[in-house]
Amino acid sequence: MIGIDKNITLAYGNGGRLMHELIDMLRSKFSNKILNELSDAAEFKVNSTRLAFSTDSFVVKPLFFPGGDIGKLAVCGTVNDISMKGATPLFISLAFIIEEGLEFSILERITSSIKQSAAKAGVLVVTGDVKVVEKGAADKIFINTAGIGVIKKYSLGTKAKPDDVIIINGPIAEHGMAILNARENLGFLSTIKSDCRNLNFEVKRCLKASKNISVMRDPTRGGLATSLNEIAYSSNLGIEVYEKSIPVRANVRKLCDVLGFDPMYVANEGKFICFVKEKDAMKVKHAIGKGTRIIGKVTSSHKGEVYLKTQIGASRILPMLEADQLPRIC
């Protein structure tokens, strides 16, 4: 039981504050040095090789959406979690929980997508599992993947350093808005696509360009605002970001406006933020390539908090996602 809640509600899975409380409750149960890092991937040594290990489950609805599908997500999600540790992903596992009645043709489409995505990311599916459950016990298909990567250059932690510059590799909020429009039958037509893709090669280029990267994070559930808060909190430092510099595609911003969403809290699946020493910022920016922006910096004031410099130059707090956003008219 957390606070006043007796039951686990959906808010415990939305990437926001309550999910962090739940994760912390679970972590304390299994407390150990590796786990307590609470990094996207665990880091440990076997003999003299440093490895990164991560797992993730995928329950997206709908299964197919503009720009991707549950299979592509399942590969990219785990590949990216390993990459955020600074590791090169090598092998992944693949487990399906299938609800009885699922058409073989759908499974075929998903597995083809997994095959393609794994090839693109340069990882091998080396072990797997299938369970079939009765109708209602799952929603069509759930996928779990785990992955192992090897740390070649240097590993990334969860703590930023004072005066680090924050870089993002492209426009935010695309995945969340693409999924929402497809799921809720809201009837908006657009070319908005999920940004779902593997980030391991971009990360590799960053690590090659600079030895002074402290943290990388892919802002998935809870959006950019939530990831920034996680890092401010774990570093016990402040973060300042500039609204003007945060890239959002025009059509994504419009759909956010129409539905009353704040893009800072909408999920991404192909974006990462990189905290790097100021002198290397431009090198890293160029290493990632087109669309990359410097969006803010780490400060020694406002420890544990994120501040947003708004378009008109006012500074206000940017908290973690509190409650899932819903389409609204007010």
Partner: peptide, 8 residues
């Protein structure tokens, strides 16, 4: 057209 987002 809201600007790249269309709706009936």
């Amino acid at each position: 057209d809201f600007g790249g987002v269309y709706k009936r």
